[in-house]
């Protein structure tokens, strides 16, 4: 649980508070943040139990593994989005950006015929490039994140179609590629590679968030950008780095979705960014910035996929599935606000 208490120690001591109140504040923040994750985790367990009672087939190992697998793509996008949202920004380009990264992997593997690892690196690099461009426009040219990433959303969508010639790219010349997502690493266990990759990426994201300067400044910029800048930190270049790191996760998501579908689908991805943002928000990260966690995002993404799968298993019509997920987002955010108001008083 080392990831859980990550935000607390770095809650910036930039505000002019005395040492004692700062320490007190730290304890309450730490308590609050673990309480919040406990609550999110509790809701996840309640949902699992609920669907298990409604239809016992929900709890079959193959179905639980399917839920984990269906969490992966949105989950990876949400990991990157967590960084961006904690800085107080937003990234609308992750969905179509992901498709562009898939296409890039396709170009490297199927058009250029290079070895598998280069395809993976190519996809992730494409993601970092997208992220760096976003970061550059946002921090150096001062374009609001919403606008900059909206523009990137369109650019990425268009480029994915242009580069692929509007056709899906298949990985027929790289036979082992789909194993990257669907291979089963542990004999006798149904859980596929993609799930392990997702959790490894989440742990990595947690470490970056809690143990590195990038993570520290992510929170610092999000809670008070001006104060951070005044304390001598180069906010602009750190923001560029934060968006670049976020882009790497988009790239990884692009590689994984391509591996799972054994094809790069250039027309895909639009709308995925909203699901990723929803996962982040359900996980307790504040859209106002300065507050959030990777563990929360993982739980948020799991809640989304448990809901989608569970509602399907109990045969709730599609229309109502969307309504249910919308309501969950509202409730999650409202509870979070209530809790914050309480601690503020």
């Amino acid at each position: 649980m080392s990831l859980v208490d990550s935000p607390a120690p770095h809650k910036p001591g930039l505000e002019p508070t005395s040492e004692t109140t700062a320490r007190k504040g730290n304890i309450s923040v730490r308590l609050r943040s673990s309480l919040q994750q406990l609550l999110a985790f509790g809701s996840l367990i309640v949902l699992v139990i609920f669907f298990g009672i409604m239809n016992s087939r929900f709890l079959l190992p193959t179905n639980l593994s399917d839920i984990l697998l269906s969490t992966v793509v949105i989950g990876l996008l949400a990991l990157g989005a967590t960084f961006v949202i904690i800085t107080g920004g937003i990234d609308l380009s992750v969905g179509t950006g992901m498709s562009l990264c898939s296409v890039m992997t396709g170009v490297v593997l199927s058009y250029l015929g290079l070895p598998l690892w280069m395809g993976v690196v190519g996809g992730i690099l494409m993601g970092t490039v997208i992220g760096a461009i976003n970061g550059f426009f946002i921090s150096f040219l001062r374009i609001p994140p919403f606008i900059a990433t909206l523009a990137m959303m369109l650019v990425a969508q268009g480029m994915a179609l242009v580069v692929s010639g509007t056709k899906p790219i298949y990985f027929t010349s790289t036979p082992g590629f789909s194993n990257l997502a669907l291979g089963k690493p542990i004999v006798g266990l149904v859980v596929p590679n993609a799930v392990f990759i997702f959790f490894a990426a989440a742990i990595l994201a947690g470490i970056v968030m809690s143990k590195t300067l990038i993570g520290r400044y992510t929170f610092s910029i999000g809670s008070n950008e001006e104060a951070t800048a005044l304390s001598g930190i180069n906010v602009r270049s750190w923001k560029l780095w934060i968006y670049t790191v976020a882009g790497a996760f988009t790239g990884l998501a692009g590689v994984i979705i391509a591996a799972r579908l054994n094809s790069a689908q250039p027309g895909q991805g639009l709308g995925y960014e909203l699901q990723a943002i929803a996962a982040v928000v359900i996980g307790g990260t504040s859209l106002a910035g300065g507050k959030g966690s990777i563990v929360g995002t993982v739980i948020g993404a799991l809640i989304m996929s448990v809901l989608t799968n569970g509602l399907r298993i109990i045969s709730v019509p599609q229309e109502w599935q969307n309504v249910a997920i919308g309501v969950v987002i509202l409730v999650a955010v409202y509870l979070d606000m209530l809790r914050r108001k309480e601690t503020a008083q």
């Binding site: 399917d66 697998l69 579908l261 045969s315």
Partner: peptide, 17 residues
């Protein structure tokens, strides 16, 4: 959407052996 269709089909198969 291929990914969403895959997940939906798997859920149906899980619910209806």
């Amino acid at each position: 959407d291929q990914l969403k269709s895959t997940d939906a089909a798997k859920a149906i198969i899980a619910a209806h052996p």
